[in-house]
Computed example of a mutant assay.
Amino acid sequence: MSKSSRIPLSSGRERPTNIAVLLREAFVALNDVVVVALAERGHAVVRPAHSAVFQYLDDTGTTVSVLAERAQMTKQAMAELVVHLERHGYVVRVPDPADRRAKLVLATEQGADVVAVAQEVAPAIEHRVEQLLGADRFAALREDLGTILRAADSSA
């Protein structure tokens, strides 16, 4: 998808971008690399939106409510993502031993493979970014992003 089709128009021109938009669009571009790798490895039903499930899913299982909170989306939207992944064999829902009313979402072997592929592709993505920026700027970017995250965490 080209940049112009992703950025909304305002008065016939692309809206001005701010740092948050640039960070989000960079994430989307890098996430698309992972989605292509997943498709090449037989996981074509996993779409970019499903990263919200896999990114926030604990190995021991996570409720839909917690997944939604972590991904900053509604429970209904997260539940739809989980249903899709469940239907295709990537996750299962099991009773939560700590709360009989709740269910935990767990990755299946197929879901664990999605996480493994993403983790396998990540170093190549980082290497590509480092090649684009140079080693010093890449190291500074990592440090700066960490600083932003720590500041955001401390103000929450």
Rank of each mutant, 00 (worst) to 15 (best):
A124W: 12
P16V: 15
V121H: 01
L22R: 04
E25C: 04
E143R: 09
E143L: 15
R93M: 15
L132H: 04
D32E: 09
A52D: 12
L104M: 09
D58W: 10
V46M: 07
R15F: 14
P95M: 15
A44V: 15
L9V: 12
L104Y: 02
T60R: 03
V105H: 02
E14F: 00
P123T: 07
R24I: 10
T63R: 01
S154L: 15
K3Y: 15
G111S: 06
R24W: 10
E143I: 15
E40C: 03
T74M: 03
G42Q: 00
T17M: 14
V115A: 01
R93Y: 13
T17F: 08
F138W: 12
G134R: 05
F54P: 01
V94A: 07
E143C: 09
T108V: 15
V117D: 02
V117I: 14
L9T: 11
Y56F: 07
G111D: 04
L104S: 02
R13N: 10
E109D: 06
F54H: 06
F54G: 02
P8Q: 07
V34P: 05
L104R: 01
R41I: 13
V36M: 04
E109N: 05
V53I: 07
I7V: 15
A52L: 13
S4D: 14
L30D: 02
V115L: 14
P8W: 08
V21I: 14
L133V: 09
T60L: 06
R100W: 11
Q55R: 03
R41E: 13
A37G: 00
R13M: 06
A124T: 13
A79S: 11
K3N: 10
L149Y: 07
G134Q: 06
R87L: 14
A77M: 12
F54V: 04
R70C: 08
N18L: 14
E80D: 08
A26D: 03
A116M: 12
Y90S: 02
A98G: 01
M1I: 13
E86S: 08
Q110M: 11
G61M: 05
R101Q: 10
Y90A: 08
V46A: 06
T108D: 05
G111Y: 10
I148D: 00
A68P: 03
D59H: 00
V121W: 01
A139C: 08
P95F: 12
R87Y: 15
T147V: 12
D99P: 00
D153N: 03
G146S: 12
L22D: 09
E126N: 05
V46I: 14
P16G: 14
M1P: 05
V105M: 00
L38S: 05
D136E: 13
V121Y: 00
D58L: 12
V92I: 12
R128I: 14
Q55D: 07
D32N: 11
A49P: 01
Q72N: 06
T17D: 07
G134I: 09
L133I: 13
A124M: 10
L81S: 02
P48Q: 08
L81V: 08
